[in-house]
């Protein structure tokens, strides 16, 4: 099977740029919204072709995490989270599998698979991603309250953001 390497690479570059140039700078300052962080780069792992070999996706996640970490000045935190998400991606895909199953050749075509599926996939994936990320960042469950608040707030805004991106770019695979 041929993988669309070029578009995967282009997505990588664009998502990293979006993340570190734009969304890293967006901050809310009032009240509970101050906990919000915008995440777009995990969608790169989400949109990987279904049949991609696991070692490749793990290494890809590691590289992407390290690049993000370099800009975020938090070496290892994003990488650890993203490698973990790449590892459990198959489980999440099984969890939200549509009744007709996946078509491995066209992967996640918005027209075929539907916006609702995208929303639930993004929701579950991001929920776990954010929770793991904030846990690793705090590095101690003493800060459980902050971890949960950050997870919920970031989940709301980041998943909206991702769905908008999906609608705009409408990826074919």
């Amino acid at each position: 099977m041929k993988f669309p390497w070029l578009s995967i690479f282009i997505r990588f570059v664009i998502l990293v740029l979006l993340q570190v140039v734009i969304f890293k700078r967006i901050e809310f300052t009032t009240g509970i919204f101050a906990y919000t962080q915008f995440f777009v780069y995990p969608i790169w792992i989400m949109l990987m072709p279904i049949r991609i070999p696991k070692p490749l996706i793990l290494i890809g996640a590691f590289i992407m995490g390290l690049v993000i970490d370099m800009f975020y000045d938090s070496l290892g935190v994003h990488a650890a989270t993203l490698v973990f998400m790449a590892f459990i991606r198959d489980f999440i895909l099984n969890l939200v599998e549509p009744e007709v199953g996946y078509d491995p050749n066209i992967s996640f075509n918005l027209k075929k698979i539907g916006l609702l599926w995208y929303a639930s996939y993004i929701g579950i994936f991001l929920l776990i991603h954010l929770f793991v990320y904030f846990s690793v960042e705090a590095f101690s469950f003493v800060y459980m309250e902050e971890i949960l608040i950050s997870t919920v707030m970031s989940l709301i805004f980041s998943s909206l953001l991702m769905i908008i991106l999906i609608l705009i770019f409408n990826p074919k695979y």
Binding site: D69, A79, V83
Partner: peptide, 8 residues
């Protein structure tokens, strides 16, 4: 990879 990450 996770061990490397946590080491970092």
């Amino acid at each position: 990879l996770e061990v490397i990450c946590f080491f970092l």
